[in-house]
Simulated scan of single mutants.
Amino acid sequence: MYDVIVIGGGLAGLVSALELTRSGWSVVLVERKTYPFHKVCGEYVSNEVRPYIESLGVDLNGLGAVNINRFQFSSPSGRLLEATLDLGGFGISRYALDYALYQLALEAGVTFRLGRQAESVTFQEDGFSVALNDTETLHSRLVIGAFGKRSKLDRQMNRAFMQQPSPYIGVKYHIRAGLPDHGMPDHRVSERGMLEHPFPTDVIALHNFPDGYCGMSAIEDDKYCLCYLTTRRNLRQFGNIADMERAILYQNPHLKRVFETYEFLYDKPEVINEISFAPKKAVEDHILMAGDSAGLITPLCGNGMAMAIHGARLVSQVANLFLNGQLSRPQLEAQYQTAWSGLFARRLWVGRNVQRLFGDAWLSEWAVTLIRTFPPLLQTIMRQTHGEVIAATPVSPLPS
Rank of each mutant, 00 (worst) to 15 (best):
E260F: 01
N67S: 13
G359I: 08
G42H: 09
A247S: 14
E136L: 14
V15D: 04
N158L: 11
I175S: 02
A83T: 14
C301V: 15
A319T: 00
L29R: 06
R232E: 15
I175P: 04
V28R: 07
G8Y: 07
G304T: 13
A108C: 08
I390V: 13
T261Q: 14
I248H: 07
L104C: 11
D267S: 11
E220T: 04
V6W: 02
D134P: 10
R236I: 03
L249F: 12
G291R: 05
R141S: 13
L255H: 02
S120F: 00
P279K: 07
R192H: 09
I7S: 06
W366K: 12
L370H: 00
S364A: 13
R232P: 02
P200D: 11
Q251N: 11
Q317W: 06
H207L: 11
Y102T: 02
Y266S: 06
F199E: 09
G9F: 09
S16L: 02
F123V: 09
D181G: 06
C214G: 04
S293P: 04
L300C: 09
I309R: 02
V189M: 08
W340P: 04
L249I: 12
Q335H: 11
L378M: 15
I287S: 09
P36R: 04
V271Q: 09
A282M: 05
P76E: 09
G24A: 10
L11C: 06
H197I: 06
N158Y: 05
V27D: 00
V28H: 08
I92F: 09
L288F: 11
N273Q: 12
